[in-house]
Amino acid sequence: MTLFKNEFPILEFDDSGSSVIMPNHENLDLILPEKCVYGFLGDEIDEYALKNKAIKVSEFVSATKLYPVYVTKYKGYEICFSQAPVGSAAAAQFLDWLIAYGVREIISTGTCGCLVDIEESVFVIPTRALRDEGTSYHYMKPSRFVDIDKKAVGAIKDLFLERGINYIETTTWTTDGFYRETEAMVKYRVEEGCRVVEMECAALCALAKLRDVIWGEILFTADTLCDVENYDQRNWAEDTLSYALELAMDVVIKIRKEKKIK
Rank of each mutant, 00 (worst) to 15 (best):
residue 166 N to W: 07
residue 222 A to M: 06
residue 40 F to G: 04
residue 99 I to G: 08
residue 44 E to P: 01
residue 256 R to L: 09
residue 173 W to C: 02
residue 132 D to F: 02
residue 20 V to H: 14
residue 153 V to I: 08
residue 219 L to C: 09
residue 201 C to I: 04
residue 251 V to W: 12
residue 119 E to S: 04
residue 104 R to T: 13
residue 160 F to G: 05
residue 85 P to I: 11
residue 67 Y to V: 07
residue 247 L to R: 05
residue 14 D to R: 03
residue 131 R to Y: 02
residue 104 R to L: 08
residue 170 T to L: 03
residue 119 E to H: 01
residue 120 E to L: 05
residue 177 G to I: 12
residue 69 V to C: 03
residue 232 D to N: 15
residue 109 T to G: 10
residue 154 G to N: 07
residue 7 E to C: 01
residue 127 T to S: 11
residue 109 T to L: 11
residue 218 I to V: 11
residue 2 T to V: 11
residue 203 A to G: 08
residue 112 C to G: 07
residue 21 I to M: 14
residue 171 T to D: 15
residue 68 P to C: 05
residue 61 V to L: 12
residue 198 E to M: 03
residue 77 Y to D: 10
residue 146 V to I: 13
residue 169 E to M: 09
residue 113 G to Q: 04
residue 150 K to M: 13
residue 204 L to H: 08
residue 44 E to M: 10
residue 49 A to F: 02
residue 107 I to L: 12
residue 67 Y to L: 09
residue 23 P to I: 03
residue 184 A to L: 09
residue 37 V to G: 02
residue 112 C to D: 08
residue 229 E to P: 00
residue 55 I to H: 04
residue 38 Y to M: 05
residue 116 V to A: 00
residue 184 A to N: 10
residue 39 G to T: 10
residue 78 E to P: 05
residue 162 E to V: 06
residue 236 W to H: 14
residue 35 K to T: 06
residue 198 E to R: 02
